[in-house]
Design a protein around this nucleic acid. Sequence first.
DNA 1: AATGAATGAGTTTTCATTCAT
DNA 2: GATGAATGAAAACTCATTCAT
Lengths: 205, 205, 205, 205
Amino acid sequence: MSATSHLRADARRHHELIVNTARTVFAEQGPEAAMDEVARLAGVGPAVLYRHFPDRDALVRAVLEDALERMTDLAESARTEETWAFDALSRFVRGCAELRLDPLVSVIGTRIAIGDGGARLLEALERIVDAAHHEGALREDVGAGDVMGAVGLLVRGLPTLPAGLAQDLRERTAHLVLAGMRAHPAPAPPRSPMTAEELRRRITG
Amino acid sequence: MSATSHLRADARRHHELIVNTARTVFAEQGPEAAMDEVARLAGVGPAVLYRHFPDRDALVRAVLEDALERMTDLAESARTEETWAFDALSRFVRGCAELRLDPLVSVIGTRIAIGDGGARLLEALERIVDAAHHEGALREDVGAGDVMGAVGLLVRGLPTLPAGLAQDLRERTAHLVLAGMRAHPAPAPPRSPMTAEELRRRITG
Amino acid sequence: MSATSHLRADARRHHELIVNTARTVFAEQGPEAAMDEVARLAGVGPAVLYRHFPDRDALVRAVLEDALERMTDLAESARTEETWAFDALSRFVRGCAELRLDPLVSVIGTRIAIGDGGARLLEALERIVDAAHHEGALREDVGAGDVMGAVGLLVRGLPTLPAGLAQDLRERTAHLVLAGMRAHPAPAPPRSPMTAEELRRRITG
Amino acid sequence: MSATSHLRADARRHHELIVNTARTVFAEQGPEAAMDEVARLAGVGPAVLYRHFPDRDALVRAVLEDALERMTDLAESARTEETWAFDALSRFVRGCAELRLDPLVSVIGTRIAIGDGGARLLEALERIVDAAHHEGALREDVGAGDVMGAVGLLVRGLPTLPAGLAQDLRERTAHLVLAGMRAHPAPAPPRSPMTAEELRRRITG
DNA sequence: AATGAATGAGTTTTCATTCAT
DNA sequence: GATGAATGAAAACTCATTCAT
């Protein structure tokens, strides 16, 4: 049951429309995007936005909660659909990066912690980690909190770099983190090694 | 020889003073910190700041270049002072996080790449990586670019979490990445596993 | 039908209020008058001004268009109310000077030409000139463009001189221009000749 | 004897250099041109400018005095070189427009009157006017002050219009004023009549 | 005396948020 | 409840002028 289910149909539509627009705007224009801009792109007046979200913080939280919900869904699908728990873990870690959470993280600053959405996500993740411990693929000295921490760092991305390069580096780092978590020797990271030479070429290119 | 060496003595002093102040202010107040605030805390008028850095971008770049220089110094000391190259690598990765580079990364956006300072850093890093390959401790399928990428993600930090927790998670993730890079089995990550339970306690704490 | 007719009642009121205030302020304080000062004297916040006129140029253009509209009205009244077309011409030329257009002219610089308002004014003026040609009072080798040019110079005024003197000189010059335009000998300029002696006395006075 | 003759050679050179630069800068960038810009284009530091001219007003006055001196020279050459006084008058009126005095006029505002340079100019002009009265070409009811007033209006120009058009209109208006000053019927204004049609074409063109 | 850095008040402009229609 | 105009507090940036080198 969503938190918006008690609203009138049009109000709920506005709520979702604004959150979706805000996610896009924050991802594209950075964390300082103007509230008016969000309203304009959502096709509503600023007052409508403020009726739904009393201030900027509330909007940011809403987008964050929405993202956490998506991450939880991701964890659940991975868990139920993958045969091996470590594969589910791997799929979860890799999938999170696509949510474009980065701009929000710095905006929120230290003002809020993870909240309810985070609690549900952590529970979902815990189920995967427990299973991965049981199957013996995950080191016993690595916990669900470690996975959350690693994901939290990975989702931020490398915005100063060309998109394709940033993507490759994120994938390779994700692989290395997962390799470090394995109880047994890991396979090679995806694609060829990222040498200094290749990094130079792709940055300047 | 620094790029500021052609300035009059008082101007050079101001230049450095402003960069140092800006690093602190950006780290504490986030990337939107007011330029006037930087000037005020540096004890100069806004116009002095603008004489040295024509716009916000120029100041951000200067702080970034400064940080890259520090990272390069860090890489060099680690390389010359550590017996084993992998230990130097490890020391470098862990040390970078303390430079509080995070707020800058999102401000700069995609506008600039790494520039000269980044090139020098990459060269220094390459020397360590080559040595670590030679000593057989670093997987051959991991390059200097991978290290840069991992560091780039690690330095961002987890600003939404309590400082001590964010620090612990960053250290443990750094350890896991390094473990994933090792040619041979890695020692346990520092301290106890970060379980979901501990994460909950320390977030709400 | 004014260009502002699609605005809400309060917005239209503000629009006109700001233009009227701006005309006065520019006339009194010169073309560099602070935008905030215009807003303050109009009794609105600066943001209201900027909502209506996105930058200084837009405000200046609005005042100019408004003035052109007044000049057009002046031309039309003169044409319909005077028996002789040359008298209408004379009344128009003399009347324009009172619109205090001067400060605007230099601000606009070469960025805009006369625009729509100017086109309408020119048409109104053309009707008078044609009639004056027909009645034989205006030289055939003087056109409506000449009248516009002369008016453009006359409206600038002589801001360095005492107001009364500047006024007298403008009136006498207007008379001389009109005299130069007549097909037949002209009557004497108004008042006594402006001798060097009188000019000296009134400048230093 | 120039007012700068008591200065050291290099200082006098600077004085003239700055005045010349300022005339150009004011003419090109308008009356709000930055003092620093004048200094920069003159190739001196701002402090040198301020040593010579204690504030903006002083610089503006200096440029104005310089222009008045040039106008006086112009009047004198016209008087001695032309056979007929009215031709000298005509040459003077037409020649003044080229001095680009316009931007200064609005800067000075009502703060200064014409000063010493103006007095000398007026004397020179008076000699021409007296001669023109004697030769019977100039109406007796037009004095030297009238000529000054007309010139004051003519020099301002029409900065919103294309340069060639502004030039033509100024010449034709000058002709009309001179025609209005003649004791006897005047020849036709230069070139073809400026019709509304031609004005439209040249503004939009 | 020349230089160019420092000053700080002032300007334009933006934006989160509230309020009248 | 939706709309879009108003608000005023800030922020970035500029510039005339002064001062240390």
